[in-house]
């Protein structure tokens, strides 16, 4: 019995070193060597300065920016140090009222548009950090952004079209638009 425990203990020690220290260190070494940008958070640099992560969304509420997905992170939205979803059940009245409020906010910012709001624009994402919105959600906001920035609608729409990431290899995932990158591009339009 005692020798059994001793064996178990030594095995645990060996595997802790092997899989808990050597393995992550090896992966880190290789990752930093081969994919340093990705391994460190896929940061976007403008003029040598980091302006955000291409994978982590940021909160927007100004009419002149495209808004991203609602975020349910605590204590404030898009808290990238505490990711999470709303976990509201589909039948939860709170969900219904939040969606209604978001639709209201969008309509208030652009009273002329009576089209149905794309669902991803009024529902919280799974991570609370979703960097993307659907192309439909981007085009839905085009008129508001164009007006706020005094740009021609067609220009804004073209900008969106350029920022649509298609399905990977034409099959995987869904078409999407990275909100931060789109807004950075907007800021550079004059």
């Amino acid at each position: 019995m005692w020798s059994q425990i001793k064996t178990a203990f030594s095995m645990l020690a060996v595997f802790t070193v092997l899989t808990g220290l050597i393995y992550p260190a090896l992966v880190t070494g290789l990752a930093q060597e081969c994919f340093p940008r990705q391994a460190n958070g896929s940061m976007i640099r403008r003029a040598g300065k980091v302006v955000g992560s291409g994978l982590i969304g940021q909160p927007f509420s100004d009419p002149k920016y495209f808004w991203g997905r609602p975020s349910a992170t605590l204590p404030y939205p898009y808290n990238a140090a505490n990711s999470g979803a709303s976990n509201l059940g589909p039948s939860n009245p709170v969900l219904l009222s939040e969606v209604r409020a978001r639709v209201q906010a969008l309509r208030a910012a652009d009273p002329e548009d009576r089209a149905d709001v794309p669902v991803d624009l009024v529902t919280a994402s799974g991570s609370g950090l979703d960097p993307d919105i659907s192309p439909a959600a981007a085009f839905y906001q085009a008129a508001r952004v164009a007006r706020a920035r005094h740009l021609k609608l067609s220009r804004v729409r073209r900008l969106i079209a350029r920022h649509v990431t298609g399905r990977q290899f034409g099959i995987l995932g869904e078409p999407r638009v990275n909100v931060l990158k789109l807004n950075l591009a907007l800021d550079r339009m004059r």
């Binding site: 589909p90 794309p118 669902v119 991803d120 991570s127 078409p175």
Partner: peptide, 23 residues
């Protein structure tokens, strides 16, 4: 509620609460 949940070329639609756009 004035929300479009139908799938089309520009959005996956459906129940997007708690989901990520890329998936």
């Amino acid at each position: 509620t004035g929300v479009s949940q139908t799938a089309n070329a520009l959005q996956s639609g459906g129940n997007m609460e708690g989901k990520e756009v890329r998936f």
